[in-house]
Design a protein around this nucleic acid. Sequence first.
DNA 1: GCCAACGTTGGC
DNA 2: GCCAACGTTGGC
Length: 135
Amino acid sequence: MNYWLMKSEPDVFSYDDLVEKGKAEWDGVRNHAAQLNMKAMRKGDLALFYHSNIGLEAVGIMEIVEEAAPDSTDETGKWIAVHVAPREKLAKPVTLKTIKADPALAGMVMIRQSRLSVSPLTEAEFRHILSLSRA
DNA sequence: GCCAACGTTGGC
DNA sequence: GCCAACGTTGGC
C-alpha cells in the first residue's frame, strides 16, 4: 500500500465536491513527474486531498479506486488520470504552516518541490499528518 | 544539444 | 500583486 498527496484548487474542485460526486477522475495533470506518480498508484492506495492556493491545508483522505487510464480531458492521448473516491474528511484540516513547522514532515516531497501537484508520502508522514488532524 | 525567453504554479 | 521554482519552447 502506498500513500500520496494530491493538490487541487478548491474553487475549481474541492474535497466537498468529491464527496458530492462520490467518485471522480483526477484529470488535468500535465506534468511528467506528477504523471509518473499517478502511474505508480494502485487500487486501494490512500491519498491526502490538499487545497492549494485557497486554504493551503490537507482536508481529507481519499482512495485510489481506478488505476491509470487515458485522461478524458486530453485530446493528445499522452496523459493519464486515475479515479479517486472520498474516504474520510479530516476532523481538523492540517495547514501548510503546521506541516512546515513540524520536523517530522521536513522531508516531504511536497515541501521540497512545492509545485508538484501529485507527490508521494511515506507511511510515517501519512500517519503523522492524520495524528495532527486529531490533535 | 545548449540556453535564453517565456509561461505556469503556488506560496506569501 | 509579486516572485521563486521549474517546465517548455524555439533560435542557434
